[in-house]
Amino acid sequence: GLEHMADEEKLPPGWEKRMERSSGRVYYFNHITNASQWERPSG
């Protein structure tokens, strides 16, 4: 619901949600550090 939507907005600075086109899996990418990970970043 709306709570989940708001929660997605609160990623740490630099992080954004991305989708891997080949598999459709969602991952997280940090455009500041060029880091990427499957787990939702905390902090």
Results as ranks from 00 to 15, higher is better:
K17T: 07
P41W: 00
L11K: 09
P12T: 02
W15V: 00
E20F: 06
P13Y: 12
G1N: 11
R40L: 08
E9F: 07
E8P: 09
G24Q: 06
A35L: 14
E9R: 07
E9S: 08
T33W: 04
E8Y: 03
P12D: 02
E8D: 13
H31V: 15
R40Q: 07
P13L: 08
Y28N: 00
S22N: 12
P41V: 01
N30I: 01
W15M: 00
E8G: 09
N34H: 13
E39K: 05
P12N: 01
E39Q: 08
E3T: 13
T33Y: 06
E16G: 04
G24W: 01
S36T: 14
I32A: 07
F29V: 05
H31Y: 15
P12E: 03
P12A: 04
Q37A: 04
S22E: 13
E39V: 05
T33F: 04
R18G: 02
E8T: 10
G24I: 01
N30E: 02
V26R: 03
P41G: 00
P13S: 07
L11W: 02
S42N: 10
V26Y: 14
N30A: 00
T33V: 03
E3Y: 01
G24H: 05
P41I: 02
S36V: 15
S22Q: 11
E20H: 14
H4D: 14
W15F: 02
V26L: 07
E16K: 03
D7N: 10
L11V: 09
E39I: 05
R25Q: 06
S23I: 04
G24Y: 01
T33E: 04
W15G: 00
S42Q: 10
R18N: 02
A6G: 11
P13H: 09
E3S: 11
N30D: 04
M19D: 03
N34A: 08
W15I: 00
R25E: 07
G24C: 09
S42A: 09
Y27R: 01
E9C: 14
F29Q: 02
Y28I: 00
Q37P: 00
D7W: 06
T33I: 05
A35Y: 07
H4S: 13
R25V: 05
S36Q: 10
E3G: 11
E20D: 15
L2R: 13
N34F: 07
I32F: 10
K17H: 04
P13T: 07
R18P: 00
Y28A: 00
I32D: 09
E20V: 10
R25K: 13
G1Q: 13
G43W: 15
E16T: 08
E8H: 09
S42V: 12
S42T: 14
S36P: 03
G14D: 05
K10C: 14
G1I: 12
N30T: 00
E3D: 10
R40W: 08
H31R: 09
D7F: 07
E9M: 08
D7Y: 06
H31I: 15
M19W: 13
Q37R: 05
M19Y: 15
R18E: 01
S23R: 03
K17D: 01
M19T: 14
M19I: 15
R18A: 04
L2F: 14
A6I: 12
A6W: 11
Y28P: 01
T33A: 03
W15N: 00
L11T: 02
D7M: 09
W15P: 00
R21N: 13
P13M: 08
M5H: 11
S42G: 10
P13Q: 08
L11M: 05
N34T: 06
S36R: 14
F29T: 03
S22P: 07
E8S: 10
G24L: 04
L11F: 02
S22D: 11
W15S: 00
E39W: 06
G1C: 15
Q37L: 03
M5S: 13
N34Y: 06
W38K: 05
N34V: 03
G1V: 12
K10Q: 13
R25L: 09
L11S: 01
E8M: 06
E3N: 11
M5Y: 11
Y27L: 03
G14W: 05
A6Q: 13
R18T: 03
S22V: 11
Q37F: 03
P41A: 00
A35H: 14
S22T: 12
S22K: 13
M5R: 10
G14C: 07
E39N: 05
D7E: 10
K10N: 13
A35Q: 15
R25G: 03
K10I: 11
K10T: 14
R40E: 05
L2I: 14
Y28K: 00
R21M: 14
P13K: 07
P13E: 09
V26K: 04
P41K: 00
R18I: 07
S36D: 03
Q37W: 03
L11G: 00
S23H: 04
M5G: 10
V26Q: 06
P13W: 09
E3W: 00
E8R: 09
G14V: 02
W38V: 07
A6Y: 13
E8K: 08
P41L: 01
E8V: 10
N34L: 12
A6F: 13
M19S: 08
W38E: 07
Y27M: 03
G43P: 10
S42D: 13
P13V: 07
T33K: 03
T33G: 01
G24N: 07
T33D: 04
V26T: 08
S36A: 11
A35M: 14
A6V: 13
K10A: 13
S22G: 12
G1M: 12
D7I: 10
E20P: 02
H4T: 14
G43Y: 14
A35R: 14
Q37D: 02
S36K: 14
Y27Q: 03
G24F: 02
S22Y: 07
S23W: 02
M19Q: 09
R21S: 14
E8Q: 10
F29K: 03
F29H: 09
N30Y: 04
H4I: 14
G24K: 07
M19E: 08
E3V: 11
G14K: 01
E16F: 04
P13N: 07
I32T: 07
R40Y: 10
D7T: 10
Y27A: 01
L2G: 14
W38M: 07
W15E: 00
S22F: 06
R25P: 02
R40S: 09
M19G: 02
P12Y: 02
E16V: 10
V26M: 08
A6N: 10
S42H: 10
I32N: 08
Q37Y: 03
R40A: 08
V26H: 09
G14L: 02
A35F: 08
L11R: 00
S22W: 06
Y28H: 00
P12I: 02
H4N: 12
M19L: 14
K17Q: 10
N30F: 03
Y28V: 00
V26D: 07
E3K: 09
G24R: 05
M19V: 15
L2Y: 14
W15L: 00
K17I: 10
P12G: 04
R21P: 15
G14I: 01
Q37K: 03
E20K: 04
D7R: 07
Y28G: 00
W38Y: 14
E16L: 05
W15H: 00
Q37V: 04
E16A: 05
L11P: 15
N30K: 00
Y27H: 03
R25W: 02
E20L: 08
E3C: 11
D7H: 10
R25M: 06
H4G: 12
H31L: 14
P12F: 02
G1K: 11
L11H: 01
N34E: 06
K10V: 12
E39M: 05
R25I: 06
G43I: 13
E9N: 08
R21V: 15
M19R: 11
A35K: 15
Y28F: 05
E20W: 06
R25D: 06
G14H: 08
Q37I: 04
G1E: 11
E16R: 03
R21T: 15
H4V: 14
S22H: 13
I32R: 05
R40G: 02
G43L: 14
Q37S: 06
H4Y: 10
Y27E: 05
M5T: 12
E16Y: 03
Y28M: 00
H31S: 14
W15K: 00
Y28L: 00
M5E: 14
E9D: 13
E16I: 08
P13I: 08
P12V: 01
S42W: 07
G14P: 09
R21A: 15
R18L: 08
R25F: 04
M19F: 14
M19A: 06
A35D: 09
P41S: 01
M5L: 13
S42R: 07
P12K: 01
S42F: 09
H4Q: 12
S42E: 12
R40T: 07
H31A: 11
E9H: 08
K17S: 06
F29S: 01
E3Q: 12
P41H: 00
K10Y: 12
E8L: 06
W38I: 06
R40K: 14
S42L: 11
H31P: 08
G1F: 13
S36E: 09
M5A: 15
M5W: 12
R21H: 14
